[in-house]
Design a protein around this nucleic acid. Sequence first.
DNA 1: CGTACACCTGAATTATTGTTCATATGTACA
DNA 2: TGTACATATGAACAATAATTCAGGTGTACG
Lengths: 119, 119
Amino acid sequence: MTQSLDDICQVRCIHTEKVEKARQYMLQDNIINSLAELFKCMGDPTRLKILHALQQQELCVCDLSVVVNSSESAVSHQLRLLRTQKLVKFRRDGKVIYYSLDDHHIGMLFNQGLEHVNE
Amino acid sequence: MTQSLDDICQVRCIHTEKVEKARQYMLQDNIINSLAELFKCMGDPTRLKILHALQQQELCVCDLSVVVNSSESAVSHQLRLLRTQKLVKFRRDGKVIYYSLDDHHIGMLFNQGLEHVNE
DNA sequence: CGTACACCTGAATTATTGTTCATATGTACA
DNA sequence: TGTACATATGAACAATAATTCAGGTGTACG
């Protein structure tokens, strides 16, 4: 059962109209959660390094593990996450699997983030 | 002591030139880490809801806790993180503290992320 | 076939993170 | 000064996530 805004605000709320407005504006939970998953994915140094390396060129797991200085197993686990979130895609060439960025948004997010970090 | 690329690649590496290229392209660790902090900050549903609500209008802690349906203490902890990462700023008006987005990049990151999520 | 190699996966361990609870700070106002 | 209220904070606990280790796929090639 959902509490009504009035029930809550009788007790603690200050700006009833602002809160009401914010509630109407608020995105659905499943959208917020997907978005959180996306940013969480980009919120790890190892994964960011992977993404940044792939911005430049496609690479195999073995190469990536050297570039990001992590074990192949760890990289493989991280790549699975990135795949699930559709941040990277891959193609098979014989025994080797080449990874690359899935989507132009990722590069843009990365660069936009960089601008913020560089003040 | 740092391993040289040759030492590593004698054993496991496939595409030496690609790896070398990727290594030169790679960002410094402190930059990658700052970037990871930024995205990590945006990688939590509660914090995303806070940010999204603040995209629309400034709000106080009390209001926010109702909007994101979380305790005031939890919201306050999250706001500290967002403050530290310079995602939000605040102004005091008597007893009440109003929070707002610090930087236009945040809104852009948010919207860019939304586009990815909506395929 | 069977071996070699690139990669994947599950379970266990360790490290991080989010929330709660109790308490502290700072401001307004009687 | 004392009380009320909005917010902040530290410590503790519970939930999640990252890495390692020990196998397990799938493909190439003799």
